[in-house]
Design a protein around this nucleic acid. Structure first.
Lengths: 174, 174
DNA sequence: ATTTCCATCGTTAAAACGTTGCGAAAGTAA
DNA sequence: TTACTTTCGCAACGTTTTAACGATGGAAAT
C-alpha cells in the first residue's frame, strides 16, 4: 500500500508539472533508496519511505515542516521529531542531502552523473531547483588550500546559489 | 563612552585568553568597521556598534541570541529583531559574515590577508575558530564549472569545516 | 524654520526550524 | 521465551528568524 501511494503521488506531481524526466518515475527512485538502505543494513521503514517520497517528489528542496504538512494532508499526522529522525536516517543512508543555506532537504541525484567524485550543489534562487554537479577537482583544491594553512578539512559537499538557465531565460523575456 | 566600553570589553576578553594577537585591539577593529560604514554612506549607529563589538570580541562565531544575552548582561536589553537588524546592516557593510552551517556570525578579517579576492571560511569543529583564506582561483573554477552547466553562480564565500592545527595537535597529545 | 522624507529603532507577536525526555512497540538474536 | 536494540509516538520545549506597525530622529527640500 505504501508503494501504491508513492506511485500515485509521483503520477500526480510529474503529471501536473509536465516534467521532462517524467520517465524516471518516483517509485524507481524510492526503490533505489530502498537498495541504498539494504546495502548498508539499515531499515527502510514505512515512515522513512514516506518522508523520502515527499522529498523526492519535490522539485528543488523542501523543509522539514513542509514535509510534515504534506504528510498530514495525506492522513499521516506526525510530530516534528519523527520527520527529523527520518531525515537523519535518510541523510545517513546518503539518499538525501541537506541544503545548509536554506535549512531544507533534497533527494540525492548522484546516479544522474555516475559516481565521479563529490558534487557541488547549485541551487537556483528563483525556482528553488537544485542540481548536483560532480566537482572532485575543486574539492581537491580546497583540501590542498586547507592543508597549506594547516587546517584539516572535512568537506562533503559545497553549495552555490545563483540562477539556473531556465530562470535566466525567463528573466530575459521580461 | 561607547568606545570606552568596547575597549574595556576587549581588554577583558583578550586578557582572559592571553590572545596572541592582542595587539590588534578591539577598538581599532571597531574603528575599521566604522570606516567601512562611512565609505558606503551607511550609519554606524550605537546599536550596530555594540552588536559589532560583541561579534568582534568573540573568538570564533557567535549566535544572535548569545549577542542578545551578552548585551543584556551589560545593561542593553534588546528584542531579537533589533539584533538581527544590526546583523543585516553589518553584513551589508561587509564587516561581518554569516556562517551558514552554524547559524552564527563572525567578524570579517579580510584586512589580515590583504584583499586578494574572495575567501573560504575554515571553521574548526573543535574550538569554533574561523579563519579566512583567500581563494579566488577556486571561486573562478566554481564559476567556470557552473557556466559549463548553464548556471549563473552568485557565490560570495565558501565554508569548510574541519580541524585547525591547534586542535589537531591537542588531540594527538591525548 | 518647517515640512517632508526615509532610515532606524522599539514593541509585540508569531513563523520556521530543531531538540529533549520518556516510554511503548516492533524487529533481532540467544 | 527472554533479552536486546532500533524505531516510533507523544508532549513539551528551545532556538532562530521574520512580520507588522508605529514612533523617533536626522537630512533634505521648500
Amino acid at each position: 500500500m505504501a508503494k501504491d501511494m508513492t506511485r500515485a503521488a509521483k503520477t500526480k506531481s510529474a503529471g501536473a508539472k509536465g516534467d521532462a524526466d517524467a520517465s524516471v518515475i518516483l517509485a524507481d527512485i524510492v526503490d533505489r533508496a530502498r537498495s541504498a538502505f539494504e546495502e548498508r543494513n539499515l531499515r527502510f521503514t514505512q515512515l522513512r519511505e514516506q518522508v523520502f517520497a515527499e522529498i523526492a517528489a519535490t522539485r528543488g528542496s523542501i523543509g522539514a515542516y513542509e514535509i510534515l504538512e504534506r504528510l498530514s494532508d495525506k492522513g499521516t499526522r506526525l510530530a516534528p521529531i519523527s520527520v527529523y529522525r527520518s531525515i537523519d536516517a535518510l541523510i545517513e543512508a546518503g539518499v538525501i542531502h541537506r541544503l545548509e543555506s536554506k535549512n531544507s532537504y533534497f533527494a540525492c541525484r548522484r546516479h544522474e552523473h555516475g559516481r565521479k567524485g563529490r558534487p557541488i550543489f547549485m541551487s537556483c534562487e528563483q525556482c528553488g531547483g537544485v542540481v548536483e554537479v560532480p566537482a572532485q577537482p575543486i574539492f581537491d583544491q580546497v583540501a590542498e588550500l586547507a592543508t597549506s594553512v594547516d587546517f584539516t578539512p572535512k568537506v562533503k559537499f559545497m553549495e552555490v546559489s545563483g540562477t539556473c538557465a531556465d530562470c535566466r531565460d525567463k528573466a530575459k523575456k521580461d
